[in-house]
Design a protein around this nucleic acid. Structure first.
Lengths: 107, 107
DNA sequence: ATTTTAGATCGTAAATTTACGATAAAGAGG
DNA sequence: CCTCTTTATCGTAAATTTACGATCTAAAAT
């Protein structure tokens, strides 16, 4: 076995985030949250052609990936991006492949 | 319809890349290529527990997402990261969500 | 206490993805 | 030409994801 690539918890976390973002619906939810800072679930549902339960499931995936947070607000839930998670993701992507493919005039 | 979010070709390209990266095997292939700069297909196959045909399929996904390039070299194919694609991805992620979740001491 | 509203979870059908073996294609060497 | 090597593609079974309606939970309002 040439298998010298150990899978770290960082890898797992990053893979989970990328997988979550790899779905167009979830990606759009992220963009919507980025644009509006905060949304109630039903607002997100209304912005899609999907059933409420489906959107709720997508939100769960984003939550478990550490990309969004939901705060209960009365009978509703208020969602926003998870700053820690998103920041971490950006750091990972930026630090990724440092040798190859670096951006110009940045280092 | 509240649908004011137009889906651009940029969105589609980004979603395709994220989806491609969202698979652990493909993610590891990317990391391997990042570490070794260049690999023949059979080297990538050997580094995984998967069948050759499966790996070839994953490479196709990465190719079509614009993340890797394959250059025919005799009967073999030599793969490397696609610098343009990877750079573009990094730019997108970096420029993404500029208001929220920006990195400290960078701007 | 009952009803209403907002979301989450459950069970399941449909669609997609993943992985495999078999086969095809293409270049290298005899 | 035939064979070997390397990779791509095809067809298909298994696993996973996606989406739905139905149901459950919790807070608010009546």
């Amino acid at each position: 076995m040439l298998q010298e690539n150990k899978i770290t918890s960082t890898d797992i976390r990053l893979a989970k985030m990328l997988k979550a973002l790899g779905n167009p619906i979830r990606f759009e939810i992220m963009e919507m949250l980025a644009a509006r800072q905060t949304c109630l679930t039903y607002e997100i549902v209304q912005s899609t052609p999907l059933a409420q339960s489906t959107v709720s499931q997508h939100l769960k995936v984003l939550r478990e990936a550490g990309l969004v947070r939901g705060e209960v607000d009365g009978p509703a839930t208020c969602y926003c991006l998870d700053p820690d998670g998103v920041r971490w993701l950006k750091e990972q992507i930026e630090g990724w492949l440092p040798d190859c493919c670096s951006l110009p005039t940045k280092g």
